[in-house]
Amino acid sequence: MIAVELRKLVTRPRTWITIALIDALPTLVAVLLALTDIGPRPGTGPAFLSAVLSDGTLFPLAALAMVLPLFLPVAVALTAGDAIAGEAQSGTLRYLLVRPVGRARLLLAKLVSVVAFVLIAVVVVAVTAYVVGALLLGDAPLSSSVSGTALTQQELAWRTALALGYAVLAMLGVASIALFFSTVTDSPQGAAMGALAVLIASTLLLTLDASQALQPYLPTRYWLAFVDLFRDPILWRDVLRGVVQQVLYVVVFLGAAWANFSTRDITS
């Protein structure tokens, strides 16, 4: 079943259009930066964007910082929201289930296919950004950390890998929420909107001092903590919290999705 879902993922044109769209933004930014050589004013742009003018090897991170707050979660919410609800809406869900495909198996296969989507999207963005950064942007001999210390190529590579892994995990949290909504409704758009509503509410509450007690539980709270991986020494505090939090989100929402889906009447 997992193979079937992966095949569906890669044969669907929408997958590649979405990834191309996600990828287009950082590429466009790189071209603009290379042409104008104007970086963002301090405190205004996404992380690392000012640094890439002199050091293009940081561009995968700048690209990640650009797509992580909005593009990537929207794409993931749409894909994961479509997982069950999309099959329900097109009517194919009932035929898969009477095939028979066990409900837990189907959910698992859908999860794996969403994970694959997240991985493909993140890797494509990172690789494109690396190539674009190397071709168009600054070629400083040595990269520096956010704290101003020098980073060897090797250090930069594994910190970047950690950051990408962290982003994937953050998106898995989104995917679990969307997957849960996808088992609740028969409308893929509704499921995606539900997940996005959670994320938007979370982002909004994060700006509110009154919600401080709530903030450690908000799903977007630690998303941008991957920047902390590039401080020297690395600030693990928020990264670790982010990891634990996203794992909890994945466990709770997947559990809820499974509990709901395995006992639900399929009337679509």
Partner: peptide, 20 residues
């Protein structure tokens, strides 16, 4: 009936046969 519109009839049957 229900099927994936972006796939051919044969591809649809192949998928449904492979599922399960």
């Amino acid at each position: 009936p229900a099927a994936y519109g972006h796939l051919s009839g044969r591809a649809n049957l192949t998928l449904i046969d492979a599922a399960g």
